[in-house]
Amino acid sequence: MATPEDAQADDGSDGRLLLLSDEDNVLVARQPISAGETILVTGVPVHIGKDILLGHKIARQTIAESEKVRKYGAPIGSATRAIALGEHVHVHNMKSDYTRTHIIDASDEEKSR
C-alpha cells in the first residue's frame, strides 16, 4: 500500500490528490479543494461543483453502475449509479457490499455547530 509521502498522484492529477494504489479508481483529497476550482484529474480538466473536504474521494475514471469502487487497491463498495471522471464519490453514488451506511440528514451549516 502506498504511503502519503509517495502517493501523490503522478498521473497528471492535481497535487492535492493522493493515489493510494495503481489499481484504484478513486483519488483521495489530502487537502480541501474548493467549489468553483477547475483541477486536473489524470490530465483532464474537471470543474469542481461542491467543496471536496479533506479525506474525501473523487473518481479517477468513469465508474459504471454496480462497478466496484477501489481504494487502497481493494474494493470498498459498489457504485449505485454511473460516476463521471472527477465526480465526488460518496454515500450518494456508492454503497457498501456488507452493511448499509447510516447517515444523519443535516445541512453543512447545522453540522458546523
Partner: peptide, 21 residues
C-alpha cells in the same frame, strides 16, 4: 447497522469496508 457512525461519512468514509481498510 455496521460499526459505522454518521461522523465517519462526514469525514469522507463511504462504507464499512472503506473504514475497515
Amino acid at each position: 447497522y455496521g460499526s459505522f457512525a454518521p461522523g465517519n461519512a462526514d469525514g469522507g468514509l463511504s462504507t464499512i469496508e472503506e473504514k475497515s481498510m
